[in-house]
């Protein structure tokens, strides 16, 4: 009895180890941004159901984490595709090249709006980018003196702009590892900071000081980092009507009965406004493909074809149902061609 038990244990163990010996991979491995994740997963699922290939696995690691894994090397143990809610940085591109990942195909997927929303039980906020900067920056300009800043003294929205309600500033948002955060500080905060002429001038003179001023979010408790979990932010906003939250448009789209998106510079975060670019805080979404893996990992070409097909990312494609904002037709055509020819990124355009 005991011997049978021991023998069966040994057998199970041997089977487990034996199968690893064949170190090949017959499914696509995708990593990267949590913002692109909901779109990539839908494509992957449809691809798996219709193509006969195995369904790709997708990890949500954040844009930065995705590039790190993606750029580590060429081979079955490294991912084939990384999603990103921002463009690849030059440093990341060079790091990849140093590890042998020389040919990377860039594909723009579509656009995503970043919304600042609160509960429908509270009044609708009408913000300008300047308001956002003054409410959330670590240091704000003091008076009209150029070059002088003070630690952000604003406690309520009324302090920022007398037209806003007298409510304590409390904003839930993503942590620094998030691509959403990167895009938010770049588009909303920097956009607001530039309305001060001396800060705009600073950009030409001292770029690092300019960046530090525009991109640093206050740490005194008014901005609360809520992790990468956007759904958690949605639930917290529903529970506390005085709090605002920062997240991707798709979450607002799904929860329109509970949340309302603040108007930014007078424009509401709506599908059309983000698609035509009039909503100021919107950003492109990308994914990057390792060209060396096309051919050795089965199905990459077909997966790319599925992702770039009109039924997926087109104006009426299934990705729009999930909240993706499609690119204009010409741009879609351009990227579809890039995918068909697998045109690698040169690096000089970054």
């Amino acid at each position: 009895m005991k011997k049978v038990f021991i023998a069966s244990l040994a057998l199970v163990f041997a089977l487990g180890i034996g199968t690893v010996g064949a170190a090949s991979r017959d499914y696509i491995s995708i990593v990267g941004s949590s913002t692109v994740y909901p779109f990539a997963t839908v494509v992957a699922e449809n691809f798996g159901k219709t193509s006969g290939f195995k369904t790709p696995t997708i990890e949500s690691t954040g844009s930065g984490g995705g590039f790190k894994l993606f750029a580590a090397g060429v081979g079955v143990e490294y991912p084939d595709i990384t999603n990103a809610s921002r463009r690849i940085k030059k440093s990341e591109f060079e790091n990849a090249a140093a590890n042998g990942v020389t040919e990377i195909v860039e594909v723009k997927v579509g656009y995503d709006g970043i919304v600042i929303a609160n509960s429908t039980k509270a009044p609708l906020f009408k913000l300008s980018r300047k308001d956002i900067f003054l409410a959330l920056a670590k240091d704000v300009p003091s008076g009209n003196v150029s070059g002088k800043t003070v630690p952000n003294p604003n406690k309520t929205w009324k302090d920022v702009n007398s037209a806003l309600p007298d409510v304590k500033i409390e904003v839930l948002g993503p942590p620094p590892t998030s691509g959403t955060r990167d895009a938010f500080v770049e588009l909303a905060m920097e956009g607001g900071a530039k309305t001060f002429s001396w800060i705009a001038d600073l950009k030409g003179k001292d770029k690092s000081a300019y960046k530090a001023l525009c991109h640093t979010i206050r740490e005194d408790g008014a901005y609360i980092e809520a992790g990468e979990n956007d759904n958690l932010i949605v639930q917290k906003l529903d529970a506390n009507k005085d709090v605002l939250g920062i997240f991707g448009f798709s979450f607002l789209d799904q929860n329109a009965d509970k949340l309302q998106g603040a108007l930014i510079d007078g424009i509401a975060p709506a599908f059309e406004a983000i698609a035509d670019g009039s909503y100021p805080v919107s950003r492109p979404l990308f994914f990057y493909v390792k060209k060396a893996h096309v051919g050795s990992i089965p199905g990459i070409k077909e997966f790319l074809a599925e992702f770039t097909s009109e039924k997926a990312w087109g104006d009426n494609g299934y990705l729009t149902d999930k909240g993706l904002i499609p690119m204009p037709t010409a741009e879609r055509k351009q990227f579809r061609q890039a995918v068909e020819n697998l045109t690698p990124l040169s690096g000089s355009e970054l």
């Binding site: 487990g16 199968t19 690893v20 994740y37 992957a44 699922e45 369904t55 696995t57 990890e59």
Partner: peptide
Amino acid sequence: IGMVAFIVDIPGGFTDP
């Protein structure tokens, strides 16, 4: 180790994702 991932196919062994 990458087990927090979107995986549709039901694994059939120790080395399936």
